[in-house]
Design a protein around this nucleic acid. Sequence first.
DNA 1: AGTGGTCGCTAAACTGATTTAGCAGAGCAT
DNA 2: ATGCTCTGCTAAATCAGTTTAGCGACCACT
Lengths: 341, 341
Amino acid sequence: MGRNRATLADVARKAGLSKTAASMVLNGREGTRLSAEAHQRVFAAAEELGYRPNLAARSLRTRKTATIAFVSDIVATTRFAGDLIRGALDAARERDHVLLITETQGDATFEQYAIEAVLDRQVDGVIYAAMATRRLTVPPAILGGPVVLLNATSPDSLPSVLPDDERAGRSVANALLELGHRDAIALIGRNRLKEDDPEVSLAARARLRGIQQALNEAEVSLLAECFCTEWLPEHGYAAMRGLLTRPKRPSAIICMNDRLAFGAYQALGEAGLTVPEDISVISFDDDPIAAWLRPGLATTALPHEQMGRRAVELLLDGGVAEPSLVPMPLRRRRSLAPPAG
Amino acid sequence: MGRNRATLADVARKAGLSKTAASMVLNGREGTRLSAEAHQRVFAAAEELGYRPNLAARSLRTRKTATIAFVSDIVATTRFAGDLIRGALDAARERDHVLLITETQGDATFEQYAIEAVLDRQVDGVIYAAMATRRLTVPPAILGGPVVLLNATSPDSLPSVLPDDERAGRSVANALLELGHRDAIALIGRNRLKEDDPEVSLAARARLRGIQQALNEAEVSLLAECFCTEWLPEHGYAAMRGLLTRPKRPSAIICMNDRLAFGAYQALGEAGLTVPEDISVISFDDDPIAAWLRPGLATTALPHEQMGRRAVELLLDGGVAEPSLVPMPLRRRRSLAPPAG
DNA sequence: AGTGGTCGCTAAACTGATTTAGCAGAGCAT
DNA sequence: ATGCTCTGCTAAATCAGTTTAGCGACCACT
């Protein structure tokens, strides 16, 4: 890979100057008293030789690598991970940095390995990302340098980036209230484990809190709440079927995520009901499937790209210790309508 | 990040030996005549000091970084990318390597930047990956070192990894033939552009060829073929609606990917038809949605994790120039049944 | 006694950058 | 003539490893 590259010494020789001079010119050092002509000659020589500095040599000396580690539990394999990484990649490129990606797969041995691998490579900082928004404890080994938590918080009060699920909860509830839904709103996706254990999820609790705040302000209470052991389509399907056996049919459904909503759609379709004429549906995440459903599913988007970007910004540009909340925009699609009758 | 780490000199001093001796022992060099006792002392000292070599210093000398560049057009943001990356990550870890990830976003400037960034970091090799299986030309700059194409081929006859779409096409057609479908099989997703331009897609042509081979062998011809401008749910939906207006209703549908099949399901649902009793459906990709559909969608899985793994293996363990085809396993799900009546 | 070979180990060069410390020459004042 | 400052530049150290060349002690053989 790229042998015979020109070195700084080559550039200096060609410019008829010392390595010191060449180094200073190319790094744009202030306060050196090198002549304008010397500058010219160095730039010309570097250009002509296609000089690119050897970063291994540079970082040996400076202890900077212009490289950020992106360590995640399992995020790189999630449907959403791409956006997290893309945002980070973009922000890193803008700052002339590059991303070293590793995955721990939630396994302590792998984590140990990943941490050592990135520390050995002298990365300038670590982004520690989680798949599910949650609280976690970071391995002490990486605390020697800058760390930003992505989609996670920790007891160590490190800078962190989280989606603003609580506000998203309010948006979702308000979207229904504005359309006139009041006494027949049902919720699919309650889950004690997710709501109570911050190491499992922070999103469930925050979304729920947001929804309840908005409903309380409007003095509305939920018609029904369905508990689901997981947030997968099959659970949304089962919950929706359950709701349809009740005496009073809901006018609108809030699902805790899009996959549940997909399941709900399936149950509604089988029951011969149409969205949104018979029932409105709204949810969270903006999974790609939300746009594919017929009609399109209104939802609040997890701003993964923004979050990845923000994490890099906090890491390189410096950031505060309190969590940085990234807004989740409401995607209005055709699954919303005023209540029938 | 990791200041005050012990250096080789520290280890050597503690062991009462020279840096040379310490280096040789720790690298397990054969043919040095260092005593067993010297080995002991070095290992003990390294262990005690928690010594980890500085990789910048090492690679300055050896020109090896134990780092692989994963350069993709836009793959890192696709739903499937995660698996590609995970496979590569796993294989890399097993070989004590790490992945540097960049994206070109199909933009020449970004590509230039990405290539320079990875070459500057002296990576040991490059995996050049594409989102859609296709032919492409790799930037000459990276040809100085080992390169493997992932999900792509190039005119340069570089080692490459591709899914075996043609065989998948045969599996798909055979699955239907085995169930007794013959004269009422329809195909959704023909697309001249994808079939004819290898720089757009290699998958479309290969899948089609496989399907036609299997049908020809059974002396069966397709009832209908629907052309789609894209392979998105809405196009599958439209195509399926079109098929249902014809005099003879198909007994089975082959969709060129799962998103089309999802659209087809939607149209079938609206028409009050059930899968698989009225119509069987089978497709390609094993998008997560295939498992979420009701009934589950039979499909041939893109073996992304395997492919990522294979790419690293070819890169580090050496590989041949002809494309390495990775089988696409058939996922049998409930969307298949013998033709009605 | 001299020569050659093996054993166990080390000094020093080398990789390619950054950075510190300082030198030669010009200009000016005393 | 001397001392001082300023300008424009460079030699050499440094980072932390790997690698080359070779040294001294000991033994065996002629």
